[in-house]
Amino acid sequence: MKTRISQLRKERKVTQEELALAVGVTRQTITSIEREKYTASLVLAYKIAKYFDLAIEEVFDFSEVGD
């Protein structure tokens, strides 16, 4: 799933490690989500969106999710 996490992190000068600590996962998890190798759970997606003070849809692209 495509996300804007990397872009948002760079705009706000947040490292993968800082984001990971803030949302309770490992840096590797953030890396995997950014590289589209792992899809975040709904709870994790909510935490990441909340961290950036955005709606989930503003961070994650659901346009390719199957019907």
Score class of each variant (00 low, 15 high):
Gln28Leu: 10
Arg27Cys: 04
Ile56Arg: 01
Lys47Thr: 04
Thr26Ile: 05
Ser41Gln: 09
Ala49Tyr: 05
Arg35His: 12
Ala40His: 02
Arg35Asn: 15
Thr39Val: 12
Val25Tyr: 04
Ala49Gln: 06
Gln28His: 10
Ser32Gln: 14
Tyr46Phe: 15
Glu36Met: 11
Leu54Asp: 00
Lys50Leu: 11
Glu36Val: 00
Ala22Met: 10
Glu57Met: 03
Gln28Ile: 12
Ile56Thr: 14
Thr39Met: 06
Thr26His: 08
Lys37Ser: 12
Gln28Tyr: 07
Tyr46Glu: 12
Glu36Tyr: 11
Thr29Val: 15
Ser41Gly: 11
Phe52Ala: 02
Leu42Ser: 13
Gly24Phe: 10
Glu34Ala: 13
Lys37Phe: 02
Ile48Trp: 03
Leu54Phe: 12
Val25Met: 06
Lys50Tyr: 10
Ala55Met: 12
Lys37Ala: 12
Ser41Asn: 05
Ala40Phe: 04
Glu57Thr: 14
Ile48Ser: 02
Ala55Leu: 14
Ile30Gln: 02
Ser41Phe: 03
Glu57Cys: 06
Glu34Gly: 12
Ile48Leu: 06
Arg27Tyr: 07
Ala45Gly: 15
Thr31Phe: 05
Thr26Trp: 07
Tyr51Pro: 05
Tyr38Trp: 09
Arg27Trp: 04
Val43Phe: 09
Val23Tyr: 03
Tyr46Ala: 12
Glu34His: 09
Ile48Thr: 07
Phe52Cys: 03
Tyr38Gly: 01
Lys47Asn: 14
Thr39His: 07
Phe52Leu: 07
Glu58Leu: 02
Ser41Val: 08
Thr26Phe: 07
Leu42Trp: 08
Ile48Gln: 00
Glu58Ile: 03
Thr39Gly: 01
Tyr46Met: 08
Val43Ser: 10
Ala45Ser: 15
Leu54Ala: 07
Ser41Tyr: 02
Leu54Cys: 12
Ala40Leu: 10
Tyr51Ser: 04
Arg35Pro: 00
Ala55Asn: 13
Val25Ile: 13
Asp53Pro: 00
Lys37Gly: 02
Thr26Val: 08
Lys37Ile: 04
Ala22Gly: 10
Gly24Val: 13
Tyr51Val: 08
Gln28Cys: 01
Glu57Gln: 11
Phe52Gly: 00
Val25Gly: 05
Ser41Asp: 09
Val43Gly: 05
Val25Cys: 13
Glu34Asp: 14
Asp53Met: 10
Ser32Ala: 15
Lys50Trp: 06
Ile30Trp: 06
Tyr38Ala: 05
Leu42Met: 13
Gly24Lys: 09
Glu36Asn: 15
Ile56Trp: 01
Thr39Gln: 13
Ile48Glu: 01
Ser41Ala: 07
Thr39Pro: 00
Ser41Thr: 15
Ala49Pro: 04
Gln28Trp: 04
Glu36Lys: 13
Thr29Arg: 04
Thr31Cys: 03
Thr26Arg: 05
Gly24Glu: 10
Ile33Phe: 04
Lys37Gln: 15
Asp53Cys: 09
Tyr46Val: 03
Thr26Ala: 08
Ile30Phe: 08
Ala22Asp: 08
Ala55Gln: 14
Glu36Phe: 02
Thr26Asn: 12
Leu44His: 02
Ile48Asp: 01
Glu58His: 07
Glu34Trp: 06
Ile48Tyr: 03
Ala45Cys: 10
Lys50Glu: 13
Arg27Pro: 01
